[in-house]
Design a protein around this nucleic acid. Structure first.
Lengths: 165, 165
DNA sequence: CGGCGTTTGTTATAGACGATTACAATTGTA
DNA sequence: TACAATTGTAATCGTCTATAACAAACGCCG
């Protein structure tokens, strides 16, 4: 029994401190760095909002996707998350071991599993979604409704566009 | 001797694929997920732009910060990056081993090192900055100048605000 | 001056996560 | 029917980060 059992920590739980009196040079003008800062702030808030549930951002995404797309294959799940098949499998294992997700054989394809939320998984996911949605709104309360929509639009535009070279 | 020496890969090099015909449910309405998508897109572009230089986003940030704040301590560097002291030290080690950064004793504080770019580190950082700035602009070419400024402003607002609870 | 908490750098260790590789089973196709 | 492609799986490796513990140096306070 470990006294200080390390709870899960998102990649960068420590908020990025704005060290006063430091010159940030070009960093403040770069979208990459600004995105990073904003995302870490979100991570921290996410962790606080879901504390004790053992959920990470990728796990949250996976549960939502499985819930909205019953029967999705592990490979496709990996594609959505941007991770390799092997990783998607471990992710699915984690859910199955906790009784949140079931693997069901597909009638027409003997290779792929179909992932489904169990009854408990549905309840769990519903509760989780409420929490995360609330957190997201709370976190963006510093923005007006118009600003929030605009931010979503710009982010979408940014990630959607393909850039040559 | 490994035949397939794995080049460094940022945490999620694989672009997050928009799987057609899939229901993303509430994810598209969440700032957290949108930020993640945009950031991964940036990671991929960053990797392409700096390929062969062995640089990662945190390393880039560190070089810029050291260049703009000569004599900064390793602890403060960690604070800027949001990582623990020990990690900042390994980061500094990596630079020192490559002759990009020098550790100099401080006259008035025998504990802390002062980090400085070496001559070669300056050249390297300058070249790197040019590349990354160009990448950042190229990547955001899908946005108008106004939109880009607005995005930076909103991101700053989002990461800056402290939220209770 | 002397003790004590604090800060810094450092080392060692452990854990989380993802990639890669290889393999078997299955499917689709030439 | 042979062969390429896809899926899940297992084993292994590498990277990154946190934690804990320690020594040296600093600052403060009695």
């Amino acid at each position: 029994m470990r006294k200080h059992a390390a709870p899960y920590r998102p990649r960068a739980l420590t908020p990025i401190a704005r060290v006063p009196g430091l010159d940030y040079d070009v960093l403040d003008e770069l979208l990459g760095y600004s995105l990073r800062r904003a995302q870490v702030a979100m991570f921290v808030a996410f962790d606080k909002a879901t504390r004790g549930m053992g959920v990470t951002p990728p796990r949250f995404t996976a549960l939502v996707i499985i819930g909205a797309n019953p029967g999705i294959s592990q490979t496709d799940l990996g594609r959505v998350l941007g991770i390799a098949r092997s990783g998607a499998m471990l992710l699915a294992d984690w859910f199955v071991r906790r009784g949140l997700v079931e693997r069901r054989r597909r009638p027409n394809d003997g290779r792929a599993w179909g992932l489904h939320l169990s009854r408990e998984g549905e309840r769990f996911t519903a509760r989780l979604k409420r929490r995360v949605i609330a957190l997201d709104l709370r976190r963006s309360r510093c923005l007006s409704a118009r600003e929030r929509r605009e931010l979503l639009r710009l982010l979408e535009k940014l990630s959607g566009s393909r850039v040559e070279a």
